[in-house]
């Protein structure tokens, strides 16, 4: 029952010992097993491989259908106008979503400006104060914040920012989105900083580095590729968010990049066009969705490559 002689893959870390309660259950199962025929058990095994494989196929089908339909329905409306024009009045042909793309970019920048410093700072705190009550509480609450429905964040931003100012602004939406980035950025920052070997921190301290310099110049710098990945994942998550924008940025049919004005956003525009009665706007919604997915996928892929390349930790 020990694993001493078992072949072990190079990637498998040392495993804890077998719990004593388990074997007896399994031994009973094994005893029952000997009464059935080997052949039937093999068939069950093969069937279950098939069933789980089927589940995997079934799970990827929606993705293929959705992406396929997006390309078929959206590509025909994608042209130069789509990237350079603002929407035409309902029912008129042509027009584009350029203002919505600019708006999404502005919102991403505003959200990052708010969410990244808090997320990274909190992540640093959690990594450097592990085991303290405050750190545990903050980590748990960060998870709670991560599970908060985006619509709740939306009505909070309305109550907190829009209502007092009596005005829908891009800023309110940016802060709502930024708040949603915080837990993800906090979590990845903490994890990436924990990967940095303690010896590196000690080496810097032994050179006469102060704690803050050690943390920022050596530890944070070393963990940076991983943190960039976390930030990109967080951005890709909020780029397509709609619910927090409904009552904060409102949407805008015209050009605007100001944080103090209502602003257009790609997901919001897709929503409004999708529920409109005009075929012309439906087509633009498909095109917008294709572009939005493209943006999200590009950011996600960039996030993967940010980790893969140059994560230079340790010498061996």
């Amino acid at each position: 029952m020990t694993d001493i002689n078992a072949p072990r893959g190079p990637a498998s870390p040392p495993k804890p010992a077998v719990r004593t309660a388990r074997p007896s259950v399994m031994q009973r199962a094994a005893a029952e097993r000997t009464q059935t025929t080997i052949g039937r058990r093999r068939v069950v095994n093969v069937v279950m491989v098939g069933v789980t494989f089927g589940a995997a196929i079934l799970a990827t089908l929606p993705l293929i259908f959705i992406l396929g339909h997006l390309i078929v329905a959206g590509a025909s409306s994608i042209n130069v106008d789509f990237f350079t024009q603002i929407p035409k009045p309902p029912g008129e042909a042509g027009g584009g979503m350029a203002n919505a793309m600019v708006g999404t970019l502005v919102l991403i920048l505003a959200a990052s400006a708010f969410g990244l410093p808090i997320g990274i700072g909190a992540g640093l705190y959690l990594a450097e104060n592990r085991g303290t009550h405050l750190a545990n509480a903050v980590r748990f609450l960060s998870d709670v914040l991560n599970g908060l429905p985006s619509i709740v964040m939306g009505i909070f931003a309305w109550q907190f920012l829009v209502k007092p100012m009596a005005k829908f602004t891009a800023l309110a939406g940016g802060i709502a989105l930024g708040a949603m980035m915080i837990p993800l950025v906090t979590r990845t920052t903490e994890e990436m900083i924990r990967i940095v070997p303690v010896s590196l921190r000690e080496a810097a301290l032994a050179l006469g580095y102060s704690r803050w310099r050690t943390s920022l110049v050596v530890v944070l710098r070393t963990a940076l590729p991983g943190i960039v990945t976390g930030a990109l994942v967080a951005v890709s998550r909020i780029a397509g968010e709609t619910a927090p924008l409904l009552f904060t940025v409102l949407g805008n049919q015209f050009w605007s990049a100001s944080l103090r004005e209502p602003i257009a956003a790609l997901p919001l525009q897709i929503f409004n066009f999708a529920i409109s009665p005009y075929d012309q706007q439906h087509a633009l919604a498909w095109a917008g969705a294709l572009v939005l997915i493209g943006i999200v996928l590009i950011i996600s892929l960039a996030a993967r490559f940010a980790t893969r390349s140059r994560f230079g930790l340790g010498g061996d």
Partner: peptide, 18 residues
């Protein structure tokens, strides 16, 4: 499968409607 999580909600809605 992970990519399913990356698709924005509004795109699911669009696909759902049509």
């Amino acid at each position: 499968v992970d990519l399913l999580a990356a698709i924005p909600s509004v795109v699911y809605g669009l696909w759902g409607i049509f």
